[in-house]
Design a protein around this nucleic acid. Sequence first.
DNA 1: TAGATCCGATCAAACGTTTTAGCAGAATGG
DNA 2: CCATTCTGCTAAAACGTTTGATCGGATCTA
Lengths: 353, 353
Amino acid sequence: MNSMENDPGTPMAAAASTVQPARAHPVTLRQVAEAAGVSTATVSLIVNKKKGARIAADTRNRVRDAIRDLGYRPNAMAQTLVSGSSRFIGLVADAIATTPFAGQIIHGAQDEAWKHGYALLIANTEGNGELETDAIAMMLEYKVRGILYSTWFHRATAVPASLRESDFVLVNCFSTEPDARAVIPDEVQGGRSATDILLRNGHRRIAFINATTPAPAKDGRLQGYREALEAEGIPFDESLVLEAYPDQEGGYGATEELLKRGVTAVYCYNDRMAMGLYDGLRENGLSIPGDMAVVGFDNQEVIAAHLRPPLSTVSLPHYELGAAGVRMLLGLDESPADTAVKVHCPPVERSSV
Amino acid sequence: MNSMENDPGTPMAAAASTVQPARAHPVTLRQVAEAAGVSTATVSLIVNKKKGARIAADTRNRVRDAIRDLGYRPNAMAQTLVSGSSRFIGLVADAIATTPFAGQIIHGAQDEAWKHGYALLIANTEGNGELETDAIAMMLEYKVRGILYSTWFHRATAVPASLRESDFVLVNCFSTEPDARAVIPDEVQGGRSATDILLRNGHRRIAFINATTPAPAKDGRLQGYREALEAEGIPFDESLVLEAYPDQEGGYGATEELLKRGVTAVYCYNDRMAMGLYDGLRENGLSIPGDMAVVGFDNQEVIAAHLRPPLSTVSLPHYELGAAGVRMLLGLDESPADTAVKVHCPPVERSSV
DNA sequence: TAGATCCGATCAAACGTTTTAGCAGAATGG
DNA sequence: CCATTCTGCTAAAACGTTTGATCGGATCTA
């Protein structure tokens, strides 16, 4: 919230005098060459700091000055044309803004791409197939280095035909088709971690409020719950697994059923359900974590970190998913080729347990 | 949650046979031309559906077939090179993922850009000046049509020197420097709308919990509150304006002070404060809206729509900000040139009043 | 002093398009 | 039957780079 210091004491004038020439017709290599009295080849060599290039210090300076004076900027399009491949990575998302999650994927992808000298070209399709085809076509025309195909919630997906015309990796989704690299969150481990938080705090009778909506997360998070219980030698009790629609209302609505189970702790399919459950518990005069320990899943900042008490949960590694996607695309990680890479979901402990 | 129908009954084979040639060395115009037995000029004419072009139906078909068979894709880089200007719009953001808001700006910008045949090139700077300079340089090198410079919260900003080398518009921020077009939310109107919701429901004694952090929003939202009161002939009472840090904890912490004021309604600087206040009120045994009506500001979906009861608030038009930014950049709206364009903040009524 | 080596820099082709000018032949007009 | 117009198509320049081949001259080497 700072950075608002406009410093009116330092007028822009000084800075403006040196730069500011641009904006008319862009300066080209040739113009720089002429200004410096050399060939374009020479300028190119200097601009790109070519290793083997033998250039007299004097020449080098003249060229550098010309570049500065004219405000030269290389034309990336021309560079790409001659080099054949661009420094773009495409990211197509099915929902950019419906959720804070997509933003994290973009963020991770952008950071990692940037780190390797790539720029991100994004498109969101809002689930519209035609838009999606167009978006991919556009990326292909811009000769992207590869395409990240991402979904806002973890799910199975079909691979659009045109995607195969480029290098690609599936992010936060996967396909059963061959040759489809993918990176997804490790739901099972996440479920285990969530349950472990409760277990480590002495709880033995732990309910799990699962989602009603079918998804890899539904199966994985349940699986993790069972594994954690098993590791502690606690028999799995089917009756402790409830189901509700995965939002605040669902969590709230599950309160009554939950209380009948006589548990001391509950693990919710996601943070939003936990948020609703908080309300339900409170209405029943129960305190958290005193009367009931609660953990969520997703680590949705706006919610989890600011509930009363702050919610212990497991983080969905969207940032890391985006970054890992880029690395996989660029062949920086050793990818197992056939099976999707699972990214760890780190537990985040706060005070609801 | 559908679209998971993978339809195993339709093997990929059929589709794959026609396409699938690509991925080796990309097909060029010349190759298509040779395959069809015409010149590249002819192919270009056909690909671009040039109006004045006179092409025999027969030729047209041969070319079309060649294009399909070879799986030709135009090389946008080459096109850009010759045409001089690209179909890119750059978007530099200071925080892509810290908040759901940035996502909305991206979304709006992307939709609007796409509508006009532009693709979005994004970069996030995380407030890092060097990164920012690099990001803008990159965009300049890609010869973007223009740059959207956006901030995640509404504030004053300095215009980076290099931004001026291109067309640009400030989104969700503004500058006092000349020739800086900008589009920002109309905080004053928003404040008025928020207060009006309460006023229309018969409340006369309304508190305002403002933020402690200086920002255009702080001043604007207060101003709107005063204007709304004044319009109803209610004298402004300084003692009804509290201040707190603008998050859940702040709202919660303000409860006590608030209750001393004997008001029937409260307008919070943002939804997060309202969320905290909900907790505070509840702990005091007060019901919403029965004992106290509450409105927020921002319309942060995850929170506002799912609180109990759902929160009436005012929407921060981030999507529209992004879209309007693109329109302004492209010169599609009549821009007032000198002063920032204010975008309307629509009230969203739910059940907290 | 002739040949080799090295230095500093240039030439020119290539990348994949778009587009203007123009050309050959057919159709039309008088 | 010649002139004109129209039709269908092509040649070639241009866009701004990169890069391997080359080149003239100075400096060594023997």
